[in-house]
């Protein structure tokens, strides 16, 4: 199966809508988890060289907290839940009902809590995508890293890198009402997965 090297505007609209539905579900899950209202921005679909994809999210050296998991099933890919440390501290404080606002390093329990939050949100994102497409899509076991944006994101571009010099990233920014928790949901489908998503939704594909 060949990969898609350029996209029609309506195809990008479909991918944006996937981001919208997936992130909408994940945002609702987050809102339920912390019992606060969470807003999301309009998802962005970025298609381009790896360095441009990273830059679209900020400085490659920027410190981030990333929960990463491999998406498995009929549309494999990579998923991230990205937060700044300030946002992660606020999120942990809300979920664990403790004051962790000035935390610099996390205990094992705090790391598992953040990882599990990422797991729940990724699960909601992917289940809505599975419902929409009637494809089998599952999250695998998540893992957390606190490090440079470029370093954590490159793991999710390896599958694209094996076939292409481009990656496609669907990104949604979310914001808790009082703006103390802000972050991103990111879905990077593997090159072959886009065909299956488009096909399942009846979107025409030109090779």
């Amino acid at each position: 199966m060949s990969n898609i090297n350029k996209f029609e505007p309506f195809q990008l609209d479909v991918l944006q809508e996937i981001g919208n539905i997936g992130s909408g579900n994940a945002t609702t899950a987050l809102s339920n988890l912390i019992n606060k209202s969470v807003d999301m921005k309009v998802p962005k679909v970025n298609f381009g060289p790896f360095s441009a994809i990273t830059e679209s999210l900020g400085d490659a050296e920027k410190a981030v907290i990333a929960v990463y998991l491999r998406v498995v099933g009929e549309t494999p890919g990579n998923m991230y839940f990205l937060l700044s440390q300030k946002s992660a501290n606020q999120l942990l404080s809300d979920v664990l009902q403790m004051d962790l606002i000035n935390k610099k390093e996390y205990s094992d329990i705090e790391i598992s809590a953040l990882t599990e939050i990422g797991n729940i949100l990724a699960g909601s994102y992917l289940s809505s995508l599975a419902n929409l497409t009637h494809l089998k899509i599952f999250p695998s076991v998540p893992s957390l890293s606190m490090d440079m944006l470029g370093a954590v994101l490159s793991s999710g571009m390896l599958q694209s890198g094996q076939y292409d010099d481009y990656a496609l990233l669907i990104e949604t920014n979310f914001l808790e009402g009082s703006e103390n928790v802000e972050g991103n949901f990111i879905f990077i489908p593997d090159p072959g997965s886009l065909h299956k998503i488009f096909h399942s939704l009846g979107v025409p594909i030109h090779d």
Binding site: Y68, L69, R70, S140, V141, S143, L144, S145, D147, A151, V152, S154, S155, L158, Q159
Partner: peptide, 11 residues
């Protein structure tokens, strides 16, 4: 970067 036992993680 991530402690997952996946082949792609040993890259």
């Amino acid at each position: 970067m991530f402690q997952i036992e996946l082949d792609s993680m040993k890259i």
